[in-house]
Write a protein that binds this DNA or RNA. Structure first.
Lengths: 150, 150
DNA sequence: AAATAATAGTTAATAATGTAAACTATTTTC
DNA sequence: GAAAATAGTTTACATTATTAACTATTATTT
């Protein structure tokens, strides 16, 4: 019997969210073990989506993280040859992040692996339930990010 | 428009689970900022549930983590005066983890804060939806932990 | 136009977390 | 009694989060 189902009030929901998320990411890593990067897949997708116009600040916003972490991510992806920093012409403080051909080659695999991991995670749920889960997760996320006052 | 709702196949579900879990834990920390510990609340609940019989190994299993991490957790809670290690009489390799009066005093607040954080996270969901979400999260967790072969 | 403030990104420092290997003490197995 | 297994600890290393101080550039103010 899963203790998760009962007495939820005694169990921090966030603990299970985090743990489940970690299981997911470890699954994703396994599916992408053929690549020579082992993290920041999602950053790569966001960067590609930005079509060479995305700045580090914007990446930070999209990831919900800070600029220091983004420096690390960008350093990592640059060092592995997946992206480049391009000094912006309009504003020389900014860098535009552009994917390399290597990234272009890897992205289909990454997308496929993400779809596969999602599939595995959500398998045995009906199409409606999947949609419902995603919807509710979005609500929970925004509930938690709303005003901290009680 | 929330990008989470569409094109989920391009977005790693685990990323949102982890992020939502972190928001939750930060909320929980805020609600418990009056305590002199700032983590391992859930471990404390598990230890109290064990009624002085829980070993470090068993705590590791309950948390889904390894024994090295548990040493750190136990060291922390011991150093803060919330628990003690009691050498087991039956098996001198083992320690039984027992809560102190200080823990007993803190636990109601912790439980209340967890219930409150759960409430905040799940607010604006109906009772049925809440149950559904918890149920599906359990399914997803077990889906991901099942056989890694594809 | 010069001084000031704000912004984009980097660097450095500290702490928390995850993982693996080597270790001690005790118990179990053969 | 020797060998193997178990419970827990220590050490080491890499990742991740957070904060502050820093450089270079752009925007604002007077």
């Amino acid at each position: 019997m899963d203790t998760l189902l009962e007495n939820i009030d005694n169990q921090p929901l966030g603990f299970f969210l985090t743990r489940t998320g970690k299981s997911y990411l470890s699954e994703l890593n396994q599916q992408l073990s053929n690549l020579d990067i082992e993290r920041n897949y999602y950053s790569l997708i966001i960067i590609e989506r930005g079509q060479g116009q995305l700045t580090q600040n914007e990446l930070a916003a999209a990831l919900g993280t800070d600029k220091v972490s983004v420096v690390r991510i960008v350093d990592y992806l640059v060092s592995k040859g997946y992206i480049r920093r391009l000094r912006s012409k309009e504003d020389k403080r900014k860098f535009c992040l552009v994917g390399t051909p290597k990234a272009l080659l890897a992205l289909p695999h990454i997308r496929k692996a993400i779809a596969g991991a999602n599939e595995k995670a959500l398998s045995s749920l009906s199409a409606d339930e999947k949609k419902e889960f995603i919807r509710m997760l979005g609500i929970i996320k925004s509930n938690l990010n709303s005003s901290k006052t009680f």
